[in-house]
Write a protein that binds this DNA or RNA. Structure first.
Length: 499
RNA sequence: GCGGGUGUAGUUCAAUGGUAGAACGGCAGCCUUCCAAGCUGCAUACGUGGGUUCGAUUCCCAUCACCCGCUCCA
């Protein structure tokens, strides 16, 4: 019986064996939280990225009014003026000092620990979690110090100097001195702009791509003739110093996002929100992710990010999450938080002027934001199909439009008669499709190899090809074969991939 | 960051205090008219760094990476 863990291991090793994904810096022993994309993984990732870009920017969906909606793209810098991250809330929210307790092995946010210090300076100070009940506090204080709450002053732990920590009894222990010094956990990678390193030229690698969209909102409006409602799309790398990178490329420290910021009027938010949830669902389904593998989580109010009043997470049933789901995409109503913040911090007016109605306002934003690299992982997991009955034992059931290789051209033998025809077909097809020409070894071995990298079609040239100009098409999932004319191969492929 | 586990070829595994084998995969060739056939040959590994030892892939320590459980995931 194959467990979800086994399945992830199998997927990871197939990815390495066939050149989808490698550990980054592999020959140096790797580096935690980073992965490299090999020849096939790069094709797969590009296919997903290009399809998203096409669906957003080149052929955006038809809106509720029957007309195509308007979306333009940008490609912003990974490093921006550091003030932009103060405005977005990342500098404040991403830098929480944490303390560890050596005895209880627990970790606390320093500002979430309340310390009761005795007013008379006698005895130990007692620490509590910020959510501790009054009765519980009173009881524990009495037990440990025989004093009442009124005999103490209270402060947050991050307000106290670290040299006093030796006198503090941690929230989950009975002896003092088990709390470590507060440590900064910088979720944002930082770097320095220019040759000298110092606080005055400190900068950050973006922890999300969307900020670059908001920073360019005015430039796009001024230069592109877009009118609300409209969207700005961006694909790019983002970086987060995750505490625990886990689950292959699911949570890595360098990853890639595909984000759309949809700017609309506040009163239209509910309509557009539903519109985008629907559109994004259709997107994943069209790539071969069945609705049954997806789950839609209306994020509870208390778990919403600081900027959002409503978020729906589109979750996928990753093997490591089974029987649960984990986040693939988030569709968030960000209100006008970002434009408001950037307007305030930058001092630049970002209001949109609606000329026909002669009004100025900050548009509200719906943000469908998905991890490109998480999407790749979902495609890999979904495609991975065990089939003991075939030589490879497994095949990758990629949707033809996502498959790294669309077809393989295989001369049945390496004899002189078959190879030239195969080469000619290959040279024709590669102008339109990413295809392989594979001449060596027996045909079964070559089919098996293509199965394992998820190539949906193989065209085989045999003696009949010489006499009647037909080739065998071998379909990956069914292994069924049919003959079609050489002239029809390109249109056949086009129909299967895009039709 | 904590606790537990693992680390031998590209992959999956084996053996061993006296420097390593297999299967599959890869490459080259023979043979092949449709699913890893058969035959021949070739290449490739003890994560890294210390220590113990005459000698370490094996024992010990550290480190790194991966997996599981916590923690974290704005």
């Amino acid at each position: 019986m194959s467990t979800p863990t086994d399945q992830m291991k199998d997927i990871v090793s197939l990815c390495k064996r066939r050149g989808f994904i490698f550990p980054a810096s592999d020959i140096y022993g790797g580096i935690n939280g980073f992965w490299d994309y090999g020849p096939l993984g790069t094709e797969l990732k590009n296919n997903l990225r290009d399809r998203w870009w096409k669906d957003m920017v080149i052929t955006p969906p038809i809106g509720p009014d029957g007309n195509p909606i308007e979306i333009v793209g940008v490609d912003s810098s990974i490093i921006q003026n550091p003030k932009s991250w103060e405005a977005s809330g990342h500098v404040g929210g991403f830098n929480d000092p944490m303390v560890d307790c050596k005895a209880s092995k627990k970790r606390y946010r320093a500002d979430h620990v309340i310390v009761y210090s005795p007013k008379d300076g006698e005895g130990h100070a007692i620490a509590f979690d910020k959510d501790a009940e009054d009765a519980e506090i009173e009881k524990r204080l009495k037990k440990l110090t025989k004093k009442a709450p009124a005999d103490f002053t209270t402060e947050k732990l991050d307000q106290l100097p670290a040299d006093q920590f030796t006198n503090i009894i941690g929230p989950d222990v009975k002896e003092p001195g088990t709390l470590t010094e507060p440590r900064q956990f910088n979720m944002m990678f930082h770097t320095f702009v220019g040759a000298t390193a110092g606080d005055e030229n400190k900068a950050y690698l973006r922890p999300e791509t969307c900020a670059g969209i908001f920073l360019n909102f005015k430039n796009v409006v001024d230069s592109s003739r877009v009118r609300v409602p409209f969207g700005i799309a961006q694909v790019g790398k983002a970086f987060r110093n995750e505490v625990t990178p886990r689950n292959f490329i699911f949570r890595s420290r360098e990853f890639e996002q595909m984000e759309l910021e949809w700017f609309c009027e506040e009163e239209d938010v509910p309509m557009w929100f539903d519109f985008w949830v629907d559109q994004r669902t259709k997107f994943w389904e069209s790539l071969g992710i069945p609705k049954s593998s997806l789950h839609f989580l209306d994020v509870p109010k208390e778990e919403l990010a600081h900027y959002s009043s409503r978020t729906i997470d589109v979750e996928y049933q990753f093997p490591f999450a089974a029987p649960g789901f984990d986040e693939l995409e988030g569709i968030a109503h960000r209100g006008c938080f970002d434009l408001t913040q950037h307007q305030e911090f930058s001092g630049t007016k970002l209001e949109y002027f609606d000329q026909p109605n002669n009004k100025r306002f900050l548009p509200h934003v719906i943000e469908p934001s998905t991890g490109l690299t998480r999407g790749v992982l979902a495609l890999l997991c979904e495609a991975y199909t065990v089939d003991e009955s075939r030589p490879s034992g497994v095949y990758m059931n990629f949707h033809p439009s996502m498959a790294p290789k669309k077809a393989a051209i295989l001369p049945l033998t390496a004899k002189e008669d078959h190879v030239p025809i195969a080469q000619k077909l290959y040279l024709e097809l590669r102008e339109q499709f990413n295809v392989d020409l594979d001449i060596k070894q027996n045909i079964g071995k070559r089919y098996a190899r293509q199965d394992e990298i998820g190539t949906p079609y193989c065209f085989t040239i045999d003696n009949d090809t010489i006499s009647d100009q037909t080739v065998t098409v071998r379909e990956r999932n069914t292994m069924a074969q049919e003959r079609i004319h050489l002239d029809k191969v390109a249109s056949y492929l086009r129909e299967k991939i895009y039709g």
